[in-house]
Amino acid sequence: MTSAEISKDMPARPAAREADEGARLGLRLTLPAQLLVLFISVFPLLMQLYISLTDWSPLSGLGWPRAYELWNGFANYVDVAGDGRLWSALGRTALVMVVCVPVEFLLGLALATLFADSFPGKRVFYSILIMPMMVVPAVAGYMFYMLFQSGGPVNDILSSLLGMPVTVAWLSDPMLAMLAVMVADIWQWTPLMFLILLAGLVGVPEDQMKAATLLGASPWQKFRTIVLPRMKTIIIIALAIRVIECFKIFDTLFIMTGGGPGVATETISVYIYKITTQDLIWGYVAAIALVILLVLSVACVWAIKRMARKERAA
């Protein structure tokens, strides 16, 4: 039978009705998720916008709907621009990002390269190496808190390596505390890079690598001309994920140092947490949060549009 005959014989489900039914069903299926997203975006955004224009605080003795009584216009936003502590928190967050992400990327890539072909014990080593990323970050924070105690095992290892007693108080020194926090981040998230990059690496066809070898390409040339171009998207994804997560960094760091000593390891999230729970200046926090959301939204939409355009061009 040709398709024309089929549709003549079976008029029960005309294509238009079918599509209509599908669209309605699709709408119903996506509805719960849509509602949840609306619930977490629309109300909070409106509330946040509202109180960000006021001096409201949970301590102000007013219910938040009456926050308009403390209206102060755009004063909070003006303060954001001049908030030195916010900008240094942003700077520290950026510092963690520019140190940790490249280190994690390079270590992950190096490990992935070692795992690209099979060798005895590969599965066991693989399972061990991906463990850190599955440890609850707060627990990881506690692990490193213990490790970096002045009488802890890090100093013990350093002592035996250097042949002299080392009693550095890692978490009480502004510079070393930052370093310790970065070490913890690198420990926990290099496995993620390793995992993603390895998945990309094994996707590079072995025959193409052999073909390149037979055409006289050196290992570096093969990496540059075959491996990298084929892994470009994967590398971008891996880096993007880590940059985003680094921007949010909180759990591990907060358990290890609480943002201290002083404000030495205070990142954006820690800063917001502190002024939320200690200073309780919620109107001002709302203004900071909105600015961050706005900047990130613009960046995100821009990045996705750009990626979509590149994909179309390819």
Partner: peptide, 30 residues
Amino acid sequence: GLSRFGAGGNLPLALIQLRLFPPMAVMIPV
């Protein structure tokens, strides 16, 4: 719904954004 009927509109993008934002930045209204 999205995979079979193409439903959802901006949902995928909204979900990516949801993932992108630091939870800290929406915790006050929450």
